[in-house]
Design a protein around this nucleic acid. Structure first.
Ligand SMILES: [Mn+2]
Ligand SMILES: [Mn+2]
Ligand SMILES: [Mn+2]
Ligand SMILES: [Mn+2]
Lengths: 218, 218
DNA sequence: GTACAAATTTAGGCTTGCCTAAATTATTTT
DNA sequence: AAAATAATTTAGGCAAGCCTAAATTTGTAC
């Protein structure tokens, strides 16, 4: 049996590992889960006993095959439920994360499969993130962050790298959503903020915002 | 904040109270939740501190107004989710209880409301049980159990009094479901078993089965 | 290579929920 | 109305997850 807490640790480790592509440190997990490093050390030892992670004292943690499978399963459920909430229940993309944080822990393989079928086998979640497939692969996407767009080039918003309500509400206010066409006009060298054109309107966005918008360039 | 465990206790107390219409004993709760009487006493004290129950030592427990509201909210979610699973995801009525036991704890008023809307404001769950309304009332139903049907009378199956997989699978095998017409042919006085006619077939069912089938008579 | 700083682990403690066994109170039986 | 039995509560303990403070290890600077 794998507890809710253990599931959250596995998910955090996966998420950090997908970003850094390297071994995961105690501190990174602690900050991701808003908990103390001491608690992480404790839990990581338990996960090791259960063969869910590979852990070397003072060196860091990696998911085992079994642990990775479990983590991806949770990520899959999270993104399927988010898709359900937006597509079927008419929630906005900014509202669904916290609810999906709860729903991702519902245990029933059959439920996950039926939900997937009901949603017509979606490939991306409402934030443009790829939904892991049943066999545990995460579809690769090649996208760049808006702050890396060449000037005077155009692109299409494919997703966001941050599932945070304030951020998403702000994008909505700017009328930025998935599929929106973007033209990169200028990058201010002082603060790396960017001037862009969206729906024929000129906007000025901070580096922090630009870093979290994922773009496909033609 | 109300914990998952507390929610399960409140739900158990409500469920017993709806059946017996009287004060609820420690032992009844313990057997309903498959836990020890000592644990129940402990928890009941905590619930009292939180003003969720009214409790008198050695006498028994009753839900407070606030506790009843909470319990009904959970029951509402349970039955809405069961309805979702059967109506939208195509689960059988025998499969949904355990999943709904998990889903009923998801915290989001908005989700409950949107689910209700998505399901088109259902009145009964897949087992024929009334779904509490948003304002916390449980629609009254007047039904008798099949074992109390007068002989040579006819009725319609409106629901079941037991949400147990084996029981429901057996009913399905007998081709008994909600809406099925039933004729009461005979009652064997020795064991109170009954001979009934369903879909033009004669069946013989035990008292225990008959007691858990809810009938509307004309 | 030693000294200092940062990261990590260990120690000791707390809360929640659970348990069994013993004590107490309530209910039946005679 | 005792005595016996049943129901309930109290006592004492345990595991899971969390915390802070102290100790240890590792990495960096000189
Ligand atoms: Mn999310
Ligand atoms: Mn998402
Ligand atoms: Mn049920
Ligand atoms: Mn039901």
């Amino acid at each position: 049996m794998i507890t809710l807490s253990e599931e959250n640790y596995l998910k955090a480790i996966l998420s950090i590992n997908l970003n850094t592509n390297s071994v995961v440190s105690t501190n990174e997990i602690a900050s991701n889960l808003n908990t103390s490093a001491a608690s992480v050390t404790e839990m990581v030892k338990k996960l090791q006993d259960k063969k869910l992670v590979i852990y070397e004292k003072y060196k860091g943690v990696n998911l085992s095959k079994k642990g990775r499978e479990k983590a991806i399963e949770i990520l899959r459920k999270h993104r399927l439920w988010e898709t359900f909430l937006v597509k079927k229940l008419d929630f906005s993309w900014a509202e669904v994360h916290d609810i999906a944080e709860q729903l991702e822990h519902i245990k029933s393989k059959k439920l996950t499969d039926k939900l997937n079928h009901f949603l017509n086998y979606p490939i991306f979640d409402p934030h443009g993130e790829p939904i892991p497939t049943k066999d545990g692969t995460i579809p690769k996407t090649k996208r760049i962050t808006l702050n890396k767009m060449p000037l005077n080039s155009k692109g299409i918003v494919m997703g966001v790298a941050l599932d945070n309500k304030e951020f998403l509400d702000y994008l909505t206010k700017l009328q930025i959503s998935i599929g929106t066409k973007v033209y990169a006009i200028d990058r201010i060298s002082f603060d790396q903020s960017m001037k862009i054109k969206i729906n024929n309107k000129l906007e000025h966005i901070s580096k922090e915002i630009a870093q979290n918008i994922l773009i496909k360039i033609n």
